[in-house]
Simulated scan of single mutants.
Amino acid sequence: MRKLTHDEISLKRSKPEEISSVKKLPVYVILNSIRSNYNVGSIFRTSDAAMIEKLYLCGYTPHPPKKEILKTALGATESVKWEYVKDALSIIKELKNKGIKVCALELTENSRAYYELNKNDFPLALVVGNEISGVSQEILDHCDMAIEIPQYGIKQSLNVAVAYGIAVYELRKIFDLNNQNKS
């Protein structure tokens, strides 16, 4: 086994000039009132890796060009389509009007495991909430569903950027498996 060089890895990746024509994961991500620049930067980078459709930064979520975001995102702010919109509910309503299901990444009385979604759940808007308080009840009232990541230890949650990474990669897996079956 030999580790690939950066040049070899680059051959398998999309080029910046091709990014607008690359088929995206039909997932829109709504970050609502995330506090940490570093979490936002990490979410940008993971969003690029999973090739999501669009990232909405809402509430008091910091947004580029903050240096901490740019440092952590490593250029993903240029490859991920994003927009700052103060009111998350306005985006949720807009996406729902387009027929996109809205899903909170949150522990609720009706949440299901993150790996239980299926092809009929796409396109999907994934709402990710504040590091401490999570997704607000006001936002939950407008969601079609909620998914959770089971916790097996004594802690009740994961870091928001880590939880997002787990969830979005599972969404990528579910979407890709269903599209392979169509071929």
Results as ranks from 00 to 15, higher is better:
residue 40 V to H: 02
residue 159 N to Y: 10
residue 75 G to R: 06
residue 68 E to R: 08
residue 102 V to M: 02
residue 106 E to S: 10
residue 180 Q to R: 15
residue 26 P to N: 11
residue 138 E to F: 03
residue 49 A to Q: 02
residue 63 H to Y: 15
residue 65 P to E: 11
residue 56 Y to G: 10
residue 115 Y to W: 10
residue 172 R to C: 03
residue 40 V to T: 12
residue 140 L to Q: 02
residue 68 E to Q: 15
residue 6 H to I: 14
residue 62 P to N: 06
residue 160 V to D: 07
residue 59 G to L: 10
residue 147 I to N: 00
residue 114 Y to Q: 06
residue 72 T to C: 00
residue 140 L to E: 02
residue 164 Y to G: 05
residue 129 G to N: 09
residue 5 T to M: 12
residue 59 G to V: 11
residue 129 G to V: 14
residue 135 V to A: 08
residue 14 S to A: 15
residue 182 K to H: 12
residue 112 R to Q: 09
residue 166 I to L: 10
residue 92 I to N: 06
residue 31 L to K: 04
residue 128 V to S: 06
residue 179 N to G: 05
residue 152 Y to S: 11
residue 12 K to H: 13
residue 162 V to K: 00
residue 26 P to M: 11
residue 161 A to M: 08
residue 56 Y to D: 09
residue 56 Y to R: 05
residue 174 I to V: 13
residue 51 M to D: 07
residue 139 I to T: 00
residue 2 R to P: 07
residue 103 C to V: 15
residue 6 H to Q: 11
residue 171 L to K: 07
residue 33 S to H: 15
residue 61 T to N: 13
residue 64 P to V: 09
residue 162 V to D: 02
residue 77 T to Y: 07
residue 99 G to S: 05
residue 40 V to W: 01
residue 84 Y to D: 03
residue 38 Y to S: 05
residue 124 L to H: 00
residue 25 L to K: 01
residue 48 D to H: 06
residue 43 I to E: 00
residue 71 K to N: 11
residue 162 V to T: 06
residue 30 I to Q: 04
residue 112 R to L: 12
residue 132 I to R: 12
residue 93 K to D: 10
residue 124 L to A: 01
residue 136 S to M: 14
residue 157 S to K: 07
residue 154 I to L: 11
residue 64 P to F: 04
residue 8 E to P: 03
residue 35 R to C: 03
residue 59 G to F: 07
residue 147 I to T: 06
residue 167 A to M: 09
residue 165 G to M: 08
residue 44 F to W: 00
residue 16 P to L: 12
residue 166 I to S: 08
residue 33 S to N: 15
residue 47 S to T: 05
residue 137 Q to Y: 11
residue 100 I to K: 07
residue 137 Q to V: 06
residue 15 K to C: 00
residue 98 K to A: 05
residue 49 A to C: 11
residue 42 S to D: 08
residue 158 L to T: 00
residue 158 L to H: 03
residue 179 N to C: 07
residue 74 L to P: 03
residue 108 T to I: 14
residue 2 R to V: 10
residue 134 G to W: 05
residue 162 V to N: 08
residue 37 N to R: 07
residue 36 S to A: 12
residue 127 V to I: 14
residue 9 I to W: 00
residue 110 N to Y: 03
residue 62 P to T: 06
residue 79 S to N: 04
residue 178 N to G: 15
residue 85 V to N: 10
residue 104 A to I: 12
residue 68 E to L: 12
residue 84 Y to E: 09
residue 110 N to K: 08
residue 130 N to Q: 11
residue 141 D to V: 01
residue 158 L to V: 01
